[in-house]
Design a protein around this nucleic acid. Structure first.
Length: 282
DNA sequence: ATAGCGCCCTGGTGGC
DNA sequence: TGCCACCAGGGCGCTA
């Protein structure tokens, strides 16, 4: 499931391939993937324009387009906002290279390559953003980037304050911290020694600091490994990640805890499979 | 305002 | 071997 490290890995690769490339044509094979525009509107929006860069906010990929003419100050940047959800893949490949059978949208580029959006389960989305076309609500309400300097232990403490929901549920709330999903919530809570079911507001300042540090370390290490591939995730070049080898608890129910040997337990929290060590995490 | 749940969707898996 | 119920889950919309 693409979370922050996976999306960041994709971003870095697309950033090496897309900027300056002009979109020659668009092929929308599944119309509802493009959430707020018709295929014709999308084509009119991007055809003949070049990508200006590749950004990321949380799990959202931001693909700004070069303005058609000098835009007035204050204009919202025109960009495509892509969310991979669970099984989405955004890759750049030569036009003659074999395509994923679940390809939903293809952007034909001016250098003989294509930007391809594929998605087995069709949850992934593309939004067209600009003047009169606001960003999706989830992006507008997104919390701080966990790897930014501005994300301090105090910022995390403020997000947890007053929340009686399980701390894992709050970590999954994108308004609390951007980009944390099921895998890295479990891994960070394990690294911090905190039980995922603890009420968020019950964490001490010390525990909050541990969780803050654990979140950053887990996310940074996962980026260094190119993300986690359980089944579907591939990076911008179509290759899997490597962090699945580093997972301590996620997907390891019944296996011994790497710290104490106690079998990893599994429960359902916030509607998600949750993995933790009953002895190490209190 | 917050917490919790069902829904979307399809392929893979495990049980019989 | 075949069938089928079940599971995976991010974000959203709904309810209490």
């Amino acid at each position: 499931m693409p979370e922050l490290p996976e999306v960041e890995t994709v971003r870095r690769q697309l950033a090496a391939a897309l900027p300056g490339r002009t979109v020659v044509d668009v092929d929308v094979r599944l119309a509802r993937t493009v959430q707020n525009a018709t295929p014709e509107e999308l084509a009119a929006f991007v055809r003949g324009r070049a990508f200006a860069g590749v950004g990321r906010r949380g799990k959202y990929l931001l693909l700004p387009l070069q303005p058609r003419r000098e835009g007035g100050a204050g204009d919202e940047p025109e960009q495509l906002v892509v969310h991979l959800r669970m099984t989405g893949r955004l890759t750049v490949a030569g036009a003659r290279e074999a395509a994923d059978p679940y390809t939903r949208v293809v952007f034909v580029l001016d250098d003989g390559r294509e930007l391809r959006f594929a998605d087995v389960r069709t949850f992934g989305t593309i939004h067209l953003c600009g003047p009169g076309r606001p960003a999706p609500r989830g992006l507008q309400e997104l919390g701080p980037e966990p790897l930014d300097d501005a994300f301090t232990p105090d910022v995390l403490a403020a997000a947890l304050r007053g929340r009686r929901a399980p701390v894992k549920a709050v970590l999954l709330d994108q308004r609390c911290v951007a980009g944390v999903g099921n895998i890295y919530a479990d891994e960070a809570l394990f690294a911090a020694g905190i039980h995922p079911g603890r009420a968020a507001a019950s964490l001490t300042a010390e525990e909050t600091a541990l969780l803050h540090a654990a979140l950053r370390q887990v996310l940074e290490k996962a980026i260094a490994f190119g993300g986690t591939t359980i089944r579907d995730y591939v990076n911008g070049n179509g290759a899997p990640g490597g962090f699945q080898r580093c997972l301590q608890v996620y997907g390891r129910a019944g296996e011994p805890c790497p710290h104490c040997g106690e079998p990893i337990a599994r429960l359902r929290l916030a509607g998600r499979g949750t993995h933790f060590c009953p002895r190490c995490q209190r």
